[in-house]
Design a protein around this nucleic acid. Structure first.
Ligand SMILES: [Mn+2]
Ligand SMILES: [Mn+2]
Ligand SMILES: [Zn+2]
Ligand SMILES: [Zn+2]
Lengths: 134, 134
DNA sequence: ACCACAATTGACAACCGTTATCGGTATCAA
DNA sequence: TTGATACCGATAACGGTTGTCAATTGTGGT
């Protein structure tokens, strides 16, 4: 079983033709497209996937934690999520997103004291700024 | 000039009657309502504010950094933003949100090394878990 | 291989939170 | 006070997302 099919299985999804197309694209792509944008990109690349399927698959992958969601104005963008703890570097000028996973991230986060009774299950940090290219 | 009017002025907004009503409510409220929800809450409280004004005001306050936005499924919730750096504790069970501003937050964040050329302008950390009440 | 059945797909319609319009009103500096 | 300007709000329009459902596909058992 290949990487793509395994990723889908782990997310509890049958590795169908359309889902393989979507996941393969997400793995290769460095950008952060919306469902609408990804649908257009796939069609332009010669693939045939319905818009509903793109929405359903991205939603399922997000729920499974395979992709992270990035809210825009009245729409949502999706990006393959890096393995392990990481932060997102988001350029306010060009919109580019990078993943940053410094080794000391775990230690820094763990040293913070949370209110008694609060059970931490997940954490997300987005850093906004201007990238080197801009 | 009162606290409410000053806050509006700092955000570059005229302190109109409707904006005072909205900001006063946001300061007192501990919840995190959407524009639609806040509009209903204000009407139920006897105030008269148009839905468009609620949307416009919340959008302007968010852009000014006075409130933080919390995306939900196909809608956005708003919450008065705490002064200074802080994290958000979000309960996955009841949806309650708390602000956490530990003193060591600045130091921990500043110790991370970012890629050369990336200028940090803002940061946001959301911690997900289950609160003490749940 | 074959089969039966549940899961999935996709064209299309509907939904609904948000934004655009625009005539009337409130704010504020001069 | 007054004129210029910002703002309000009822309503219409917009558009990203979700629901529908007949046709198709993936899968495990035979
Ligand atoms: Mn990520
Ligand atoms: Mn906040
Ligand atoms: Zn950039
Ligand atoms: Zn809770």
């Amino acid at each position: 079983m290949g990487e793509v099919a395994g990723l889908l299985r782990r997310a509890g999804l049958r590795p169908t033709t359309q889902r393989r197309i979507i996941v393969t694209d997400l793995i290769d792509r460095t950008g952060t497209p919306t469902a609408l944008e990804l649908h257009a990109l796939l069609r332009d690349a010669g693939h045939r996937v319905g818009l509903s399927t793109v929405y359903r698959t991205l939603g399922a992958l997000a729920e499974a934690g395979v992709v992270h969601t990035f809210p825009r104005r009245n729409e949502v963008a999706f990006r393959r999520c890096a393995d392990g703890p990481h932060q997102h570097l988001i350029c306010l000028s060009c919109g580019r997103i990078e993943d940053l996973a410094p080794p000391q991230l775990d230690a820094a986060a763990g040293s913070l004291a949370y209110p008694a009774g609060f059970t931490v299950q997940g954490r997300r940090t987005d850093v906004y700024g201007v990238c080197a290219a801009c």
